[in-house]
Amino acid sequence: MHTKKIFIIEDDNMTIEILKYIFSKEGYQLSISKDGLDAIERIPEEVPDLVLTDIMLPMKSGLEIIQFIKDNFTNLPVIVLSSLGEEEATVLDAFKLGADDFIAKPFSPSELLLRVKRFLK
């Protein structure tokens, strides 16, 4: 059984540190990207088991990332992690593009872990 790999796309350092803490404690392998363009270039090379992305990102948005993933890796689950301040329409757009789940920031670490595990079992 290989270690599950989570690809995190997030530009906020504090959130990255929290996510690193939550997931490495559980033994997940992590890849982290701080902008959408870098993520789109690295996802095909790294072939993660799950992608966790913010919506508001430099270079390319989370919506563009979801579109890219769903066009190229139909079975790769994408969880959107985004501030409650985001437009509701953006969240709907994320689901229309194929996002598998949405978690609002600030998030509960245990809820996030539970949702991630649901996709990685």
Rank of each mutant, 00 (worst) to 15 (best):
I43M: 12
P106T: 11
N72V: 03
H2F: 04
N13V: 07
E111H: 10
A89R: 12
I43C: 07
D35Y: 06
I66P: 02
T90Y: 14
A89L: 11
Y28K: 08
V51M: 05
K96C: 03
K117P: 00
I32A: 06
K34F: 01
D54F: 00
S82Y: 03
P58R: 13
I65A: 06
F102E: 11
G27S: 11
I18N: 02
F95L: 11
F73T: 04
Y21K: 10
D71H: 14
P58I: 13
D35M: 08
S61D: 08
I9R: 01
E26I: 12
T74P: 04
D71T: 09
L19N: 06
T15C: 06
K20H: 08
L52W: 00
S110H: 13
N75S: 12
M14W: 08
I40K: 12
R42M: 14
L30Y: 12
G36Q: 01
S82H: 05
T74E: 14
I6W: 02
M56Y: 10
I103P: 00
D93F: 07
T15K: 07
Q67T: 11
D54Y: 00
T90W: 14
E45D: 10
F107S: 02
A89I: 13
D101V: 06
E88R: 11
T53N: 06
F107N: 03
P77N: 11
K121R: 15
V47Y: 12
I6G: 01
Y21H: 09
Q67M: 09
D11G: 12
K117I: 04
